[in-house]
Design a protein around this nucleic acid. Sequence first.
DNA 1: TTCACAAAATGATTTTAATCATTTTATTTA
DNA 2: TAAATAAAATGATTAAAATCATTTTGTGAA
Lengths: 225, 225
Amino acid sequence: MILEDCKKCNLCEVFRNCEDNNKDEFSRLKEIFLLKKKSSIVKAGFPVDGFYILKSGFVKVLKSGYNEKKQIIRLCKPGDVIGHRALNRDYYPIDAVALTDVHVCFFDINVFHEILLKNPQLAYYLLTFLADELYESEKKARNYAMMNVRESIISALLYIDAEFKNIKGIPVLSRLEIAEIAATTKEQASKYLNELNEDKLIKIKGKKISILQKDKLEKSIEQYA
Amino acid sequence: MILEDCKKCNLCEVFRNCEDNNKDEFSRLKEIFLLKKKSSIVKAGFPVDGFYILKSGFVKVLKSGYNEKKQIIRLCKPGDVIGHRALNRDYYPIDAVALTDVHVCFFDINVFHEILLKNPQLAYYLLTFLADELYESEKKARNYAMMNVRESIISALLYIDAEFKNIKGIPVLSRLEIAEIAATTKEQASKYLNELNEDKLIKIKGKKISILQKDKLEKSIEQYA
DNA sequence: TTCACAAAATGATTTTAATCATTTTATTTA
DNA sequence: TAAATAAAATGATTAAAATCATTTTGTGAA
């Protein structure tokens, strides 16, 4: 059962501050897509025509390298926006792939532009939202250049934990995917995850990894705050 | 001679679209600072109270690591905005240091907020501006994790070239600073710069480095576009 | 349940980059 | 201008991570 009325949906932070007449416009103009696990929401190289809000399910946003090496840029949960970074680009630079079955709302860029001009409060909110993402992105860029592999893995685990905290239906990520988040290889991911397991900082139970001593993990990378 | 009237100053892209009454407000409310080479405009750890626009001179924005290792996040030229990424943070996470004598305009965050709410066109412009910076930042993050040192150095050189194209009074960057842009060490920077020099892709003449074969340099890192 | 396949673990090897040590070359300033 | 200092070059060493090769474990389909 899909909720088509934006007024009744309190999911996405981005639109929460909007007035009802804007929400009615969104409801009217948005498109809803249902996609299966592993399918692409956004494909690198395709023209940018708008952005998506993830309504249900989980998504990974990734960059594919020339040599089959992939890098996961971020993980998305219900309510997250996808594709807005390419807002004034012609083509999407990245791929967004469903980690589970998903349900997304699509907003056309031109329509959105019109609404924004009529709604400065929303524009300001989005501004701070983007500033925040920029802040996080730069932090990440700085850090992965300075951290060693163990620290990168810890950082990836804490990121996953923070991103998917208190949410149901969280997808289990493979060693390879964790490696792709930490910008390393699956072998290294495997090695350091087991090391962290032996150090009793995390607990590995099959595919499920749980954090045991979050404070210690955080402390070990606090220098990169 | 400092131009205090924002109406007469066409320097910063950000405010170019503003209406004259807003510009008058900016003129009235901004503060102007003159700072000497090597002095700090923004200091990490200090409270965020607004943002700066660089009026003249050049600035490097950098993150200092725990172990004296620094990383240059970006270079700024006249017209560039500094400190906006921390817009809704409490403290600046980075340092901004003058590469030359500089002249900056400071805008208080609260004042700016008021103006934005009255000026949706400006808000929208800023939105696309931030989306763009976010795009670039993520590109950078992705790339430095995948490139080898030679490629990082090439990327740094092309960045400097693009950033400081056709501008007078460009500061000469040291090997250490180039290394800090490329996220490597001064020894590696030195080594690969000389290698590129021998390959006739660049020309080193004392401290001055000029690009000889931009197309080839670009081609060698095109896979990271 | 077994077979086939994928994912993970793991140790050896190779590659790459950082660090270190020293020399050479610039730059500053007394 | 010379001495002092800083920056750059450079080769040797060490350290870290990637790659490779193989084994083990796990998972899903027949």
